[in-house]
Design a protein around this nucleic acid. Structure first.
Lengths: 229, 229
DNA sequence: TCAAAAGTGTTCTTAGTACACCCATGT
DNA sequence: ACATGGGTGTACTAAGAACACTTTTGA
């Protein structure tokens, strides 16, 4: 082995997925109660070591698929966690993967044993440096929600504007003016209004919308800058 | 070893530093001509495997120190590069580290043998996936220059407003109106005007400024949002 | 008929953009 | 005296913020 390689020490590389969902007006995180050692009984993010034949991104998608059965989820790299003593079991680095799942409602998703949704506003202590990962992921979520129409990833395909607003209020922990929110949102021209209404939260009902991905991508390629709030 | 650890395969973990500098009106990148196999003679970013007793961030700082002798540089994680076949020599992932160096001028920095500054607008082909790392780093540079006063990291401690404008024009590859640029910049209230002038580029001379880090941090902690252009 | 959420417009303020001339100085 | 880059101000336009009432409908 050449000079470049000879000093390298092989170490374990993991992914940990910070998976957000939104249901019944609450922002939630998917956590796993460890059934086995190490750290048995502790709450943890859902992760895995990367396999010899997969990239970190592929490992993240595999984990998410194993847990939820879902394939098409929004996922992006958060950052690496590499402190020497972060895992007492072994020298091991982890790449955080930030993921958003759109739920029709919580119950429609079949998740594996030991895995549970937790409200973001009421999380248990997590093992290792997973609390820090969640803090970082929440900051990323706010950033993305502000500059990309990423909030839409957390809603069902058909959603109402008041629903989206409530989601943004949950993410940013503050109220928005409904007239300004609606005006700004519709001015982006990336929503398609449907004929149907959703009457689950009011007698009058609110019009359902779909997100126009094609239009969004076209605008983005033209260098159009979004800012949703 | 427990269930969690048993499937992990240990692999090599490297850092590669994408190091920008700015000198004589040109944005530059620090590259290394490989003196030994593998890939002898190819241009590469400057990297290293991480050592058993250091984090990825520490490895990046170590590499930068070894090459330039500098300690206090701006560095942040870019992203990981983890494709299975990215390095033909071995399974090896790399964490890109984005770094900015403030040069008084190019010659003041003593850099190691085989390491050279290259104009960003005229880069050679790089080994492995290093070209992609540079593309990603340039996008990050533009983002950071827009939303953080990061352009200042690339200038000497004392600089003139026309200098900063030229740097921004180099980063974004477009001209800015000098009146508006100055107005916006000064309205942020994070520059301290000095009594001295720099006469190196005009007979009249331009006032030198320093960046007020303390004030900047205070404003940032208050949630103040910057946008420099 | 009333309670509860959905939907709608206007004014005011602020920030961004476009644009042209005088200033200071070394040669 | 002139060439060169540094420095300034104003008018126009666009976007964001503040703010209150009408509509629909199920119970």
């Amino acid at each position: 082995m050449s000079d470049k390689y000879k000093h390298g020490e092989k170490i374990l590389v993991a992914v940990d997925c910070i998976i957000f969902g939104y249901d019944h007006g609450t922002l939630k995180l998917l956590l796993f109660k460890r059934l086995l050692e190490p750290l048995k009984g502790g709450w943890s993010l859902i992760g895995s070591f990367i396999l010899p034949n997969e990239s970190v991104e592929e490992a993240g998608k595999r984990v998410l698929h194993e847990i939820t059965g879902l394939d098409e989820v929004y996922m992006e790299e958060l950052k690496s966690y590499t402190a020497v003593d972060r895992d007492p079991g072994a020298r091991c680095i982890s790449i955080g993967q930030f993921a958003l799942i759109g739920l029709e409602n919580e119950e429609t998703l079949e998740i594996k044993d030991g895995v549970q949704w937790h409200s973001v506003s009421d999380l248990p202590e997590l093992v290792l440096d997973h609390n820090q990962m969640v803090v970082d992921a929440l900051a990323r979520l706010r950033n993305r929600a502000q500059y990309y129409p990423i909030g839409l990833e957390l809603l069902p395909k058909k959603f109402t504007i008041p629903q989206l607003q409530t989601l943004y209020e949950e993410i940013f922990q503050k109220k928005f003016d409904s007239r300004n929110f609606r005006k700004k949102l519709l001015s982006l021209n990336i929503l398609i209004q449907l004929k149907e209404k959703d009457k689950s939260s009011s007698k009058k009902g609110a019009f359902l919308y779909e997100f126009d991905y094609t239009k969004y991508r076209k605008l983005k390629n033209k260098g159009f800058k979004f800012s949703l709030i």
